[in-house]
Design a protein around this nucleic acid. Structure first.
Length: 241
DNA sequence: CTGCAACCTCGTCGCCTCAT
DNA sequence: ATGAGGCGACGAGGTTGCAG
């Protein structure tokens, strides 16, 4: 996914009230940028960090012209825009560049499912020949790390646990289900559940995997111009967590 | 008065429905 | 057929309201 319009360099001053971030442009102007990531953003919202923000299109009716897109952590850019993972993954699925899911030729996003269809799956994959069972894909933006291990979630999330149970239920119906942590930074080489933050999610992940849900952590390749998908990361259970 | 739980809220996206 | 408007999802801090 190429950033269009291109990103503008800025400095993160503070992030507050979940949706807002004060950032300083190169000319010293301070503007409020919209922060689509309502999570905790531990370790990637430090004041003074270099960041990149994206302007809304000219004809947009948005109240906030800017969106916080990337934050520099160490030497890596971290993607903090929660819209990005779904766009990048959907693009890769349509181009059939994710090997494990390349057999599917149709991608639908935000499809209602689950009990009473009150949940929405990020992507529903089907093959037009009808030879494969439908595949339910839930994308999780992952920005937290422990050393070189990417962790999810960064806060207790009942909803994320519910998603795992719903994926397992789809497997029970004979469908395929994939939990896809989108590791939104380049400095990780493995994935693990953040059991120290949300032990319920971590144990539910184990149950879901045992039930046949597939785990597919994918590392993003991020630079100032684009975000694309890189390597599949191994599931590395850390000792003592 | 204190402590806790439940509810509300924020801005954006994208789907859905309804009107033209 | 196209556009406008409404609504749910997202997640945690802030607020409200209740029980003790």
């Amino acid at each position: 996914m190429r950033f269009s319009p291109p990103l503008t360099p800025a400095t993160l001053l503070r992030r507050y009230k979940r949706f807002f971030a004060d950032v300083e442009l190169a000319d010293g102007t301070v503007v409020v940028a919209h922060c689509t990531n309502t999570g905790r953003m531990t370790g990637c919202s430090d004041p003074g960090s270099a960041c990149l923000i994206q302007p809304a299109p000219e004809d947009s009716k948005r109240k906030l012209r800017w969106t916080l897109s990337l934050v520099k952590v160490g030497r890596s850019w971290v993607s903090v825009d929660t819209m990005t993972p779904n766009r990048v993954v959907a693009e890769a699925l349509r181009r059939r560049t994710i090997e494990a899911l390349a057999a599917y030729d149709t991608v639908k996003t935000e499809v209602p499912y689950g009990p009473g269809k009150r949940s929405r799956i990020d992507m529903l994959l089907t093959d037009s020949a009808g030879a494969l069972p439908p595949c339910y894909v839930e994308v999780k933006n992952t920005t937290l790390t422990d050393g070189n291990v990417a962790l999810f979630p960064d806060a207790v999330s009942e909803r994320a646990t519910k998603h795992l149970n719903e994926l397992a239920a789809e497997v029970g119906k004979g469908n395929r289900a994939v939990i896809l942590p989108f590791v939104a930074r380049g400095d990780c080489d493995a994935f693990d559940a953040a059991g120290e933050i949300d032990p319920v999610w971590a144990s539910t992940l184990e149950t879901a995997l045992a039930a046949g849900v597939e785990l597919l952590p994918l590392r993003a390749r991020i630079d100032k111009r684009s975000v694309t998908l890189g390597a599949v990361l191994p599931y590395a259970r850390r000792a003592g967590v």
